[in-house]
């Protein structure tokens, strides 16, 4: 398919103003005909606004009481309209544009389906900051990530010997997708689900990456049961460390051992 004039590139601006934006992403923002921004701090939004004469915030698309799916679709439609007008469009999203962010994926998918150029440029995500600040190596015990509401709505397989990380925990359990925060009754349901797998006194962590370089991260350890009354914002992430040791899979280990022995015998022959 021949690509038409008009393009969409979604870039990540990272989590911390000034510290995380890659030279390539900055260049995309500066060279764009129009930039749509969705970031996690008003000052970061101002900062992006200085990089290009036509930067449009996606904040006005959010309305409390309206499903975020409606807002997300409207954001995608606004960006696609400019792509169809033949413009070089850039979506500047906080963190990594492809991590726990459906709008960038959707707009690129739609643009490509219409025959336009679409690309995603990675950024430093909240996940990246979390691994650094909490000194977690996801490879040590394994690590599962879920959007908190999805974790509640569906039956998931939980492995208490690995890290469990829940995103958007501030709106956990919101079936309407129209709330900007959910209260204690919703959070109690989440605690009840987690309590099936973790002791109520298990230490969990509330994490927030700094958005401004003068701020520091938030790392608050608390027992699982205390989550109910904890201060949780839209950008707070819940980290649940393992509560069980890794269990050896003896059946698999014996099979692998047998293969090793066979290989040795073949060499001897």
């Amino acid at each position: 398919m021949n690509e038409q004039q008009g393009s969409i590139v979604c870039v990540g601006v990272g989590m911390t103003l000034g510290s995380h934006l890659s030279p390539l992403s900055r260049s995309y923002i500066e060279q764009a005909d129009v930039v749509f921004s969705l970031v996690s701090d008003g000052l970061v939004e101002q900062w992006i606004g200085q990089m290009n004469p036509d930067v449009r915030s996606l904040q006005p698309y959010y309305h409390e009481g309206t499903s975020r799916l409606v807002s997300y679709n409207a954001m995608v439609a606004a960006m696609i309209a400019e792509v169809k007008a033949g413009k070089k469009v850039v979506g500047a999203f906080y963190g990594h544009p492809g991590v726990f962010a459906c709008v960038p994926h959707k707009v690129i998918e739609q643009a490509r389906a219409l025959g336009y150029y679409g690309k995603m440029e990675p950024g430093i995500s909240a996940e990246d900051c979390l691994f650094s600040d909490l000194a977690i190596d996801p490879g040590q015990f394994g690590c599962s990530h879920f959007e908190a509401s999805q974790f509640m709505f569906y039956k998931r397989i939980i492995d208490p010997s690995a890290y469990l990380i829940l995103w958007q925990v501030g709106i956990a359990g919101d079936l309407s997708l129209s709330k900007f925060s959910t209260g204690e009754s919703y959070r109690q349901v989440l605690i009840d689900i987690l309590s099936l797998h973790y002791p109520k006194d298990h230490q969990v962590i509330l994490y927030e990456a700094p958005t401004l370089p003068i701020h520091s991260h938030r790392i608050e350890s608390l027992p699982l049961s205390s989550l109910l009354h904890a201060e949780i914002h839209g950008y707070t992430t819940l980290v649940i460390p393992p509560c069980q040791e890794l269990t050896r899979n003896m059946e698999v280990l014996q099979r692998l051992d047998a293969i090793d022995k066979d290989h040795k015998n073949i060499k001897l022959v």
Binding site: S40, Y72, F93, F100, C102, Q150, Q168, L177, G234, Y235
Partner: peptide
């Protein structure tokens, strides 16, 4: 600022 960009389904 609202910064939710993900949906559960």
């Amino acid at each position: 600022i609202i910064c939710y960009v993900s949906a559960p389904a």
